[in-house]
């Protein structure tokens, strides 16, 4: 089975208070020099059958209508190498 990964991130102009909270906690833990953190979502899809253009078009459609809200989020679709 092939794996397709959909990464969803808030658009750059949208404030990400969760990412900011993570970033602010870092110095306390001894991790210096991290200027910014943005938090996103990663979906790993195990696809039955071939990951051809038709399958990728469907996954793109799924990401656009459901996995991401394109009013506030951007997404990328990547096919992972089969092992």
């Amino acid at each position: 089975m092939a794996r397709v990964v959909v990464d969803v991130m808030l658009k750059p102009e949208i404030l990400d208070p969760q990412g900011q909270a993570v970033q602010r906690a870092l110095p306390r833990l001894g991790f210096e020099s991290i200027a910014d953190v943005r938090q996103g979502k990663r979906f790993e899809l195990e696809v039955e059958g071939p990951v051809d253009d038709a399958a990728l078009t469907r996954i793109h459609e799924m990401a656009e209508t459901f996995l991401a809200n394109t009013v506030i989020e951007d997404f990328t679709v990547k096919v992972e190498e089969e092992k």
């Binding site: 808030l10 949208i14 404030l15 208070p17 969760q18 909270a21 809200n69 009013v71 506030i72």
Partner: peptide, 15 residues
């Protein structure tokens, strides 16, 4: 989410 109204809702800025 249904796009009957524009925009979106996000986590409160103070969490």
């Amino acid at each position: 989410e249904a796009h009957l109204l524009p925009g979106a809702m996000l986590r409160n800025n103070h969490l």
